[in-house]
């Protein structure tokens, strides 16, 4: 499995660690009710098809990426720097 790092080009999966769904990028406000934090931390869909996840290029350039991949076909269809997605 290759992930197309925007900095480094296509790189082997060994160089990455997966954090999970991109939900992690969307933090509730500190004043949000416990239910919102529960959703943010614990509750995830389990899609059959395209999904967006956060991956860390930990043994490469060190960037956090948002990776688009398909859970059915295992195709990786794109990757962006997380800081650009957050902008």
């Amino acid at each position: 499995m290759l992930i197309p790092c925007p900095q480094c080009g296509p790189r082997d999966i060994r160089e990455f660690t997966c954090k999970g769904h991109e939900t992690y990028m969307h933090r509730p406000s500190p004043a949000a009710p416990p239910e919102a934090w529960d959703d943010h931390l614990h509750n995830r869909d389990n899609p059959a098809g395209p999904t967006r996840e956060m991956w860390h290029h930990v043994a490469g350039c060190g960037a956090w990426l948002v990776v688009e991949r398909n859970t059915v076909t295992h195709a990786v269809t794109g990757a962006m720097l997380a800081r650009e997605v957050a902008r």
Binding site: C8, R11, R14, E15, V58, A59, G60, C61, G62
Partner: peptide, 10 residues
């Protein structure tokens, strides 16, 4: 210049 792995080492 390449940041990568050497075996298990960054």
């Amino acid at each position: 210049a390449r940041r990568t792995l050497l075996g298990h080492m960054s």
